[in-house]
């Protein structure tokens, strides 16, 4: 970050401006995360009134059977699949937006793409339920058009969860890729073509590498929340919608085994951090 020409000195003069924000973050984010780390090693919550002691049992529970690792793997796979589809669907749209459309049309379309961010995600997920279920909009519409009877009942299935999540997260990819693609000078693309590169070669060897920061940023922005998602699988997945996130939710709102929930959360956090740590150097190199 650029500095206002100031020389390196103590934090003193910056403190009054910084302190409120960072105190708030400490109370609402950093202390809670530390507390959760602490509680994940306890048998019971201290404030529950019951006797408690330190234990590794909560973490051992994760490895005791196939259940939790399987669910974690299912969540990671869900994250990867949703990220893959979002990148595949979002990148071409970002390219058209950045390199084909111009002026007011581009501005309007860009706005339309990011506008759903300002509508309620939960409701958008639920409206997919109206679309996808048997006797729902898609079913009725297709049967009204097609001469033969089809049965569309995607509701409470894995594809329904994927569709809902992709719908929720694809604008992130469009946004991040649009920003990096817009920064690529058109003459670079023309230069590659003038040197004999076909459209495909230009895409693969020039545009994709230059757009990599946007693709990775978009991917991270999608993967991380999807791995921890529980609302979308619950609404669209029904009984097939049991994922790692829904199990953690249960520990806190149904089973009330908070220490186990904390341990499961921390394992998820560790996995996410490892993935971010792998992505970070790629991002930095790409810049």
């Amino acid at each position: 970050m650029a500095t206002g020409g100031a020389s390196r000195r103590g934090i003193g003069p910056a403190l009054p401006l910084l302190a409120p924000a960072y105190l708030w973050l400490t109370v609402a984010i950093f202390l809670p995360l530390s507390a959760m780390a602490f509680f994940s090693f306890m048998t019971e919550l201290p404030m529950s009134g019951k006797d408690w002691s330190f234990t590794l049992e909560n973490y051992a529970a994760f490895f005791s059977g196939a259940l939790y690792p399987t669910l974690l793997w299912a969540s990671l796979r869900l994250g990867l699949e949703v990220t893959f589809w979002c990148l595949l669907i979002g990148f071409p749209a970002a390219y058209v937006l950045a390199k084909v459309l111009k002026g007011r049309v581009r501005e309007a379309i860009f706005l339309l793409v990011i506008l759903p961010f300002w509508s309620n995600g939960l409701v958008r997920i639920f409206s997919w339920a109206m679309v996808l279920r048997e006797g729902g909009i898609l079913d009725t519409a297709l049967n009204a058009v097609l001469p033969f009877k089809v049965n569309i009942d995607l509701m409470y299935s894995y594809p329904a969860v994927i569709i809902g999540l992709v719908h929720s997260y694809v604008p992130y990819v469009v946004l991040t890729c649009y920003l990096t693609l817009q920064a690529i000078d058109d003459s670079l693309i023309e230069a590659a073509r003038s040197l004999g590169a076909s459209r495909l070669q230009t895409l693969r060897r020039l545009i994709l590498p230059l757009a990599m920061p946007g693709l990775i940023a978009g991917g991270v922005l999608i993967f991380v929340p999807v791995v921890g998602s529980f609302m979308e699988p619950r609404i669209l997945g029904g009984r097939t919608g049991t994922f790692y996130g829904t199990v953690i939710e249960d520990q806190f709102v149904a089973v009330f085994n908070w220490p186990l929930g904390a341990a499961l959360s921390f394992i998820l956090l560790a996995v996410v951090l490892v993935i971010l740590a792998v992505a970070a150097p790629v991002l930095r190199r790409a810049q």
Binding site: D185, S187, E190, A191, A197, L206
Partner: peptide, 17 residues
């Protein structure tokens, strides 16, 4: 890409990556 020409651009257009 099939014309076998060489071109130098106003801003050079060197590939930054």
């Amino acid at each position: 890409d099939k014309r076998r020409i060489g071109m130098v651009f106003q801003n050079y257009a060197l590939f930054p990556n």
